[in-house]
Amino acid sequence: MSFFTVDSISLQFGGLKAVDKVSFSVEKGEIFTIIGPNGAGKTSIFNLISRLYDPTSGKLFFEGRDITEVPAHQIAKLGIARTFQNIELFENATMLANLLVGRHCHATTQLWQEILFLPSVRRAEKEHRRKVEEVIEFLDLQAYREKLIAGLPYGVRKVVEVARALCSEPKLILLDEPSSGLNVEETDDMSFWIRDIRTELGVTVLMVEHDMTLVNRVSDRVLALNYGKVLASGTPAEVQAHPDVIAAYLGA
């Protein structure tokens, strides 16, 4: 069994089939990219995986376990973290608080302990902070600890979102268009980080991306979607050479 498997999953909104019997599997340590024109159903697949949507049919397996019925808030605890296409940070909190929320799935303290702020809570907090600092170090975010997210530039927020996902110490990270809205230089940084996330942290990466340069540079395998259906999958070069993919992008 693969590390992460999507087994003929479908999602239907009324009459519209947003995702139509899509199957793929991701191996451990891989960087796997989903590409496709707008409205192809890429983000819908992410929303299905993070259980924000319920699939109409099909199953999801993570490390051999069926996660199709797991509630959304327990997905993080299993080791799947994600970022969002349009940045969903906690705007009116500091960056540090945002990253600490990323640690939430590792919270062990009980409410009554927190109200009294017992030594165990203090210890746990320091441990969370230590882990957060590692991520801050990793992504070079030292300058922004006490800054409110609302005041940060777009490019930084994008990185903070990746950082927040990493704080949960995931095994699989879902990046939804990590380079959208970034300039060339920031995209460059992002591509290095994505590879570092895989090689240094050993996290498997599943991403949705439009920027083909970035895709070519980092992906091991690529899946192309259109109208909710799989067009092709394989190495970046194979997929880009596939006639259906060319037709989908250039119009047949």
Binding site: S50, L52, P71, A72, H73, Q74, I75, A76, K77, A81, R82, F84, E88, L89, F90, E91, N92, A93, A97, L100, V101, G102, R103, H104, C105, A107, T109, L111, E114, I115, L116, F117, V121, E125, H128, R164, S168
Partner: peptide
């Protein structure tokens, strides 16, 4: 005390983005 521990941060997360809060493991 709540504000400096996971529960208080979860509250703030819910205030600012319910979707993201859910994905971060907040019930």
């Amino acid at each position: 005390n709540l504000l400096r521990s996971p529960t208080g941060r979860a509250f703030i997360a819910i205030r600012d983005s319910e979707t993201a809060a859910k994905s971060m493991g907040i019930d």
